[in-house]
Amino acid sequence: MSTVAKAKGFKHSKPGLWLSIGTSAFGAVTIYKDVKKARTESDTLKLINALVGAAALITGTALLVRELRQLGDDDVLLG
């Protein structure tokens, strides 16, 4: 298998999915800060924007977890 093919398969491998989930955790920190700032400023529109972002982050993470569970032992990089 070529290096390019392995790199393309990384996104759908266990390590790739775990990396994506970890990246989502950093996004959660940003959303938390946005919510806190919006509350401090009493800015309803910014608060709604942060909450919609949080919903998207939760949905995306749930999809990654589901794909990780479906992957099981059929990991592309492990052979």
Score class of each variant (00 low, 15 high):
V29K: 08
K8F: 11
K11R: 09
S24D: 11
L63M: 15
A62L: 13
A28R: 00
A50W: 03
G22E: 08
S42W: 07
A54D: 03
K11T: 05
A55G: 10
T40P: 03
I21P: 02
I48P: 00
K33T: 13
K37T: 15
G53S: 11
W18A: 06
I58N: 05
D74W: 01
V29S: 09
K37M: 11
L71V: 03
K36F: 12
T30K: 11
A50R: 02
D74I: 02
G53Y: 05
K33N: 14
T3R: 10
R39Y: 08
L19P: 00
A5F: 06
T30G: 13
I31L: 13
H12G: 08
F26L: 10
K11M: 08
S42L: 12
G79R: 11
D34K: 05
V76N: 06
A54P: 00
L78F: 07
T44D: 14
L17H: 04
R39H: 09
M1A: 12
I48M: 11
V76P: 07
R39V: 06
K11F: 07
K46S: 15
A25W: 11
K46F: 06
T44V: 10
S24G: 15
A56K: 12
T61N: 09
A54N: 07
V4I: 14
A62E: 08
L45I: 12
G60D: 03
T61L: 01
G79E: 05
P15L: 07
L45S: 15
A55H: 07
G53H: 05
F10D: 04
V65L: 13
E67C: 02
F10A: 11
V52K: 13
I31F: 03
S13W: 03
K8C: 09
V52Y: 11
S13M: 01
S24T: 10
K36R: 15
K14I: 02
K8A: 12
T61P: 06
G16R: 00
V76Y: 12
S24K: 08
K8L: 14
V65W: 01
T44I: 12
